[in-house]
């Protein structure tokens, strides 16, 4: 087994990073067009993970994650426009269902694809107003979460956590108290180091799960459960330490930290928390 990016994957990572930085302030529809032009929606699992990690880092406002990892694995194709999938057996908390052009439903009769307009999904009011989650009313729903959806949320959450850590590191180098940068205090350093370790742990497990999906390895079910659980563990550390180290600044609306904290937390709460996936590993 080889567990490092090859040259093309490294190149892709660089391109995604540059693109995401460059397009940060573009409106949503232009971002979406850029992603389509670059062929990111068609990326195979490991490459998709590379894209999603960076989109997580950027708190991407588009329905890319839902289209690539909620719709596509269910429908077996890409949607016309954007898409999402209902596979929880209930139709609660469906990512981007309020704005998807097509919605794939996992039903007792198999997968049914419907027009988003026809389903009239009801957007839920949530703590993070940039997050689109909606309730979908449809008959005969059954549960069966695609591995790709778990991997996608896991690796996006890793991206959010990386962003939180980067913001924290920049902040604690900059902010002075008692005449020194607060980053020179050991209590601060150790919190940052713990964030780093949690991120690295979650990152390798997320990429391993992408790799098992790419090669359709029999370990994929366990690998995605581990990835989702580790991402959940990671956001716990990064949310707590990240918020704490910002002091009152992190408590404000203006500070961009809040966006990433909320994304990271949502990444754990959607499709089962760390604790639930750990239990899945025990059976």
């Amino acid at each position: 087994m080889e567990f490092e990016f090859d040259d093309e994957q490294r190149l892709l990572q660089r391109v995604v990073r540059e693109t995401v930085t460059r397009t940060r302030s573009l409106p949503e529809d232009q971002l979406w067009d850029t992603y389509l032009e670059l062929g990111w929606l068609e990326a195979p699992p490991v490459e998709l993970a590379i894209v999603l990690e960076e989109l997580g880092y950027a708190a991407d406002p588009t329905p890319f994650l839902a289209t690539a990892t909620w719709f596509a694995p269910l429908a077996g194709r890409l949607p016309r426009g954007s898409g999402t999938g209902v596979f929880d057996g209930e139709g609660r908390f469906v990512l981007d269902a309020d704005r998807a052009d097509e919605i794939a439903l996992l039903t007792s009769e198999g997968v049914v694809v419907r027009d988003g307009k026809d389903l009239a999904a009801e957007r839920l009011s949530v703590f993070d107003p940039t997050l689109h989650v909606a309730r979908v009313d449809a008959p005969d729903l059954v549960a069966g979460v695609p591995d790709l959806a778990l991997m996608g949320l896991a690796v996006s959450t890793v991206g959010s956590c990386r962003r939180i850590l980067d913001l924290v590191v920049a902040h604690v180098k900059e902010r002075h108290q008692f005449g020194v940068p607060i980053g020179s205090f050991q209590a601060v350093k150790h919190k940052a180091a713990d964030m780093y370790v949690a991120i690295e742990r979650a990152k390798v497990l997320a990429y391993f799960s992408a790799l098992t999906i790419a090669e359709d390895d029999p370990r994929r079910g366990r690998a995605v459960a581990m990835a989702k659980a580790a991402a959940g563990d990671c956001q716990r550390v990064c949310f707590r330490n990240g918020f704490q180290l910002f002091g009152a600044m992190g408590y404000t609306w203006e500070n961009e930290l809040q966006i990433h904290l909320k994304r990271a937390k949502a990444g754990d709460l959607l499709l089962g928390t760390a604790s639930e996936h750990r239990k899945a590993l025990l059976v």
Binding site: K173, H190, V197
Partner: peptide
């Protein structure tokens, strides 16, 4: 180890 990670990977001041 945490000191090393903070100072030599994350670049926090010594």
């Amino acid at each position: 180890q945490r000191n090393i990670i903070a100072e030599r990977i994350l670049g926090l001041p010594r």
